[in-house]
């Protein structure tokens, strides 16, 4: 029970930080911001690492393996496309 309360505390406090983190984002940044935040949600990768690497049956290891593949696509692809978008953004600014 104490664990639950503690976890709820950090969940709620982190949510408040998340709510305050961004405001007045220019429209050109909507997609890159969405994409960057999306890459961060691939943090579930560390959960996948534990599932597939810790003790357990073959079945749970395979589930963990699938989770790793999925989450790694999210993380690696997500950060890379965000960087590509922002790189173009920068160039466009320079041209003007």
């Amino acid at each position: 029970m104490e664990d639950l309360i503690f976890n709820l505390f950090i969940f709620v406090l982190a949510s408040f930080i998340g709510f305050e983190l961004i405001s007045k984002v220019p429209p050109t940044l909507h997609t890159p911001l969405m994409s960057g935040a999306n890459a961060i949600s691939g943090i579930t990768l560390i959960g996948a690492l534990i599932i597939s690497g810790a003790t357990g049956g073959a079945f749970s290891h395979w589930i963990g393996f699938a989770a790793i593949v999925f989450a790694t696509i999210n993380v690696v692809g997500g950060f890379m496309v965000t960087d590509r978008m922002l790189e173009m953004f920068k160039k466009k600014e320079d041209d003007q």
């Binding site: 982190a14 930080i17 998340g18 961004i22 949600s41 943090i43 579930t44 560390i46 959960g47």
Partner: peptide, 29 residues
Amino acid sequence: IAASMAGFVLGNNLLIISGALVGAAGLIL
């Protein structure tokens, strides 16, 4: 939010916090 919930399951702070950050910032966006 799904990642944050997975963090509750595993008792992993980094998952709970990062998931909540994205969940909240995503909602604002």
